[in-house]
């Protein structure tokens, strides 16, 4: 820290130093002053750059290397086997099942997050309700987002227990006529899981879209009103286009994050019953930490990375365009 401090201090303290008698010395002084000044920003970002190299760049290279080796971490003399691990992964039907289920889970989550988030944002944005009530409701509607995935998982395991309250209500309303095993039947587990995730994730959209709605200039609506537009047309031609940049941003981020889901699945179904809720992250985790097949797991992890990064590419492009 000392040397960093010296250099940072040097940028301006240097000006007050008595000037060197000889011009050559002074030139040297000027040069190092300039160099020092150019170094300053690098010193500020150095700790972060170091950490990102250690925690991001290096691990990425490592995981890619592992994915090309046979028996990484476990074998002392692991050898390179080229794309063999990828071939093994791609010929595993469970991998493809996981890809499909991950996509179903992700697409359904993103779509319903958006619909519910938008509906709540619109409801909260109307002038028809009392402002105090609105701020109270806003606080309450955000609550699901505050719970960590593990807690969301056990809340829904309690509610969706075969003897739980949801089954009791559904039976009382004659919607189902037996105790549905939501999380342990291959038919319902993935849907139950997706539902729990939808419940937990809409508030991010709601808050962002509410901020977006409040940022739409009132003049647009007034002008449309003068031109004789009805509410539906205003929504279609003003609200949606104005919200579009926000919608695209959050939907892309949400897509990326939801694709990586782990704790919720791990804590509700663990990927079961019989892989019915296996997603890419649980599939990879089990390969690594249950079967100790770190090389196969690395290959699978690289696949998740490539999927995430291809969406991220659009996300960054979109952010830059704004």
């Amino acid at each position: 820290m000392n040397s960093a401090n010296d250099i940072l201090m040097g940028t301006h303290a240097g000006m007050q130093k008595p000037s060197a008698p000889k011009s050559r010395l002074r030139k040297q002084g000027m040069l190092s002053y300039k160099t020092k000044k150019r170094l300053v920003p690098f010193l500020y970002v150095a700790p972060a750059a170091f950490l990102f190299s250690l925690l991001m760049l290096f691990p990425m290279i490592t995981v890619f290397r592992y994915s090309l080796m046979d028996g990484a971490i476990m074998k002392k003399n692991a050898v390179f086997v080229g794309l063999q691990n990828y071939v093994t992964i791609f010929s595993d039907p469970v991998f493809w099942q996981s890809v499909g289920q991950t996509l179903y889970f992700t697409v359904m989550s993103v779509v319903f997050h958006l619909l519910i988030g938008l509906a709540f944002a619109l409801l909260l944005n109307t002038q028809r309700i009392d402002p105090t009530l609105r701020s109270i409701l806003r606080v309450l509607y955000i609550l699901p987002w505050l719970f960590t995935a593990v807690i969301i998982a056990i809340i829904w395991r309690l509610l969706l227990d075969p003897n739980g309250v949801i089954n009791s209500i559904l039976i009382a309303l004659n919607i189902v006529d037996f105790k549905v095993e939501w999380f342990s039947s291959t038919k319902t587990a993935l849907h139950a899981l997706t539902f729990a995730n939808i419940w937990a994730g809409y508030p991010l959209y709601m808050v962002s879209l509410l901020a977006g709605l409040q940022g739409i200039p009132k003049e647009l609506y007034e002008a449309a009103g003068i031109d004789g537009a009805n509410e539906v047309q205003k929504f279609r031609y003003i609200t949606i286009p104005q919200l579009m940049p926000i919608i695209i941003s959050i939907a892309l981020l949400d897509f990326i994050w939801t694709m990586q889901v782990f704790p919720l699945v791990w804590m509700t179904t663990g990927g079961g019953p019989i892989h019915a809720t296996e997603v890419l992250s649980t599939y990879t985790y089990k390969l690594a930490f249950s079967s100790y097949e770190f090389s196969l797991a690395s290959a699978s992890a690289i696949c998740i990375l490539i999927m995430s990064m291809s969406v991220t590419y659009f996300y960054i492009k979109h952010q830059k365009a704004r």
């Binding site: 972060a48 990102f52 925690l55 991001m56 290096f58 691990p59 990425m60 490592t62 995981v63 592992y66 990484a72 971490i73 981020l253 990326i256 994050w257 694709m259 990586q260 782990f262 890419l280 992250s281 990879t284 985790y285 690594a288 930490f289 770190f294 797991a297 690395s298 992890a301 690289i302 998740i304 990375l305 995430s308 990064m309 969406v311 991220t312 996300y315 960054i316 952010q319």
Partner: peptide, 22 residues
């Protein structure tokens, strides 16, 4: 800057395996 933004979206499970080794 781009590196930092894209770090947000790297799957934790991808990092976990090398982290475990590290």
């Amino acid at each position: 800057n781009v590196f930092i933004i894209s770090t947000q979206t790297v799957p934790p499970i991808t990092l976990l395996i090398p982290y475990f080794g590290m």
